[in-house]
Design a protein around this nucleic acid. Structure first.
Length: 465
RNA sequence: GUCGGGAUAACAUAGGGGCCAUGUGGUGGACUGCAGAUCCUCAUACGGGAGUUCAAAUCUCCCUCCCGACCCCA
């Protein structure tokens, strides 16, 4: 069984073969930091977080890089409105990004390069592209990539240059030799943030930063390049051209693109104004629920965002969490019974098989529900041993390193166990003497403290809410 | 228009030639002082049309519709 990845470049699912055995170099496009991130960004972040974690789980040594675009028109405009320097604005939203990422349980990338701090690499690359004859300096000091110089434009987009040119809505730019040419260096307008370059003061075009940062941090060629599918054209297409203009080699072997989050059938985006900030959503739903919501569907599928959908995710996840809590309760009980080896191994195999199949997290979660059904049954008839419960729990913790959907806090608080034993015993006496009012009050007040008491045929059980 | 991804029960989603898919919600039971959880049970499916096949939700072809990309975007 081996990992398969849907490659946008070929449009097919392919066996994953890394450049260096046992190692993976992955670059995931980050965000332009001029505002808080929204749920669409969250989807991409959670998806690739799962991808990176699964690669590591599978034994690969992964180097993961995600960039920040911190120099750009929108940042400049926002900064002007706010009356602060652009890099101060972007620095602020980088801080907010990390705050939100943490709230979503996103693991840290190895490096987070910024455009503003990669200027030497960028300028060197622009110069190299010019030297190799793929770009030209315009009268105003901007540098444009000459798309007609490459023979196979559109490999990722699966369209020919002529197709695109005839359908494009590109504003006429007198500086360009061909209207499909794109800026890799933009000359500065008066008073605008800029860096010195051989072509005068200016700043990088949007696509060049990724090409330059990948090259300086990961080398000429990487294994996986990821991002939202809205980046396929022109961003990723152009990254390919820029890098190849220097190296003569393909930039990445596998291109992965996540599907868009939609609101009422329309893409969630800043420009449409239909976005929900991670901050708002994270204040109402815990990170586990948000992660479950996104991972409960394949990363490439479109997903329609709604509060109802999150509520449903919350209800669904509760089933898994209840099962997890019940297993913890059984594990504490010191009971005899099945060791659950077969069930756990079956679930692990099924889980891995799904993720190996183009990171099908939905299928992996389905395996968890199947396992929960089996263990619930065993819990209901008391046929699972404490060791068995612990075995299942340990498996769930193992895979949760990737999914991040189970409760994060530990439950092995001996003191709490003892206190609960006492409370349950006292409440039992009350119930025996039919003092239900008092018994219920104990239960209600424990609920306020996020501890759930359940009266079952096998005695009283408790778990955290 | 050109490219890409889709259409699966009430809803949200997996699957991808034959075998009881998963969850939410709904039905009826079991358990139960109540509540909750859990178990059992039932119902509702593969956009439309041709074809291939012993067998199609799954393969092929055609059609319809939806979303996205083609200016910025995760």
């Amino acid at each position: 069984m081996s990992l398969k990845i849907h490659n946008t470049l070929t449009g097919k699912k392919e066996d994953f073969v890394p450049i260096d055995q046992g190692k993976v170099k992955i670059y995931v496009c980050g965000v332009t930091v001029y505002d808080d991130i929204h749920m669409g960004h969250a989807r991409s972040m959670i998806v690739f977080d799962m991808v990176v974690k699964y690669l590591r789980y599978s034994g690969y040594e992964v180097t993961h890089i995600t960039n920040f675009t911190d120099v750009d028109d929108k940042i400049i405009n926002r900064a002007n409105e706010a009356g602060i320097p652009p890099l101060e604005l972007s620095a602020r939203y980088i801080r907010e990004y990390f705050r939100d990422a943490e709230a979503l349980g996103i693991g840290r990338a190895d490096i987070y390069p910024k455009a503003s701090e990669s200027m030497d690499d960028i300028i060197a690359m622009v110069r190299e592209i010019i030297d190799n004859g793929f770009a030209y300096e315009a009268e105003d000091g901007s540098v444009y990539f000459s798309v007609r110089k490459v023979k196979d434009y559109g490999r990722l987009t699966h369209r020919s240059l002529d197709d695109m040119e005839s359908s494009g809505r590109i504003a006429e730019d007198p500086m360009k030799k061909d209207q499909m040419d794109f800026a890799i260096w933009k000359s500065a307008k008066p008073g605008e943030i800029s860096w010195d370059s051989p072509w005068g003061k200016g700043r990088p075009g949007w696509h060049i930063e990724c090409s330059a940062m990948i090259r300086s941090h990961l080398g000429d060629k990487i294994d996986i390049h990821g991002g939202g599918n809205d980046l396929i054209f022109p961003h990723h297409e152009n990254e390919i051209l820029q890098t190849e203009a220097c190296t003569g080699e393909p930039l990445a072997n596998y291109w992965m693109h996540n599907g868009m989050l939609q609101v009422k059938g329309e893409k969630m985006s800043k420009s449409l104004g239909n976005f929900f900030r991670v901050k708002e959503v994270a204040s109402k739903y815990d990170p586990q629920t948000i992660r479950f919501y996104f991972l409960n569907t394949h990363y490439m599928s479109p997903l329609i965002y709604s509060e109802d959908a999150l509520e449903e995710a919350s209800a669904s996840l509760k089933r898994l969490v209840n099962n997890y809590r019940d297993l913890q309760s059984r594990s504490r009980a010191g009971a005899a019974g099945s060791d659950m080896v077969a069930e756990t191994e079956e679930a692990r195999a099924s889980f891995r098989e799904s993720l190996d199949d183009d990171f099908n997290s939905r299928g992996a979660i389905e395996a968890l529900f199947v396992l929960a059904k089996k263990t619930n049954k065993a819990l209901a008839d008391g046929s699972i041993s404490s060791e068995g419960a612990e075995r299942v729990l340990s498996f769930l913790r193992e895979i949760d390193g990737m999914l991040g959907i189970y409760p994060s806090e530990g439950l092995s608080d001996d003191t709490l166990d003892k206190v609960m034993d006492i409370l349950i015993a006292i409440r039992g006496e009350l119930r025996k003497s039919k003092q239900y009012k008092m018994a219920d009050e104990i239960r209600d007040r424990l609920a306020d403290a996020d501890i759930v008491l359940e009266d079952t045929a096998d005695g009283v059980k408790w778990k955290r809410a």
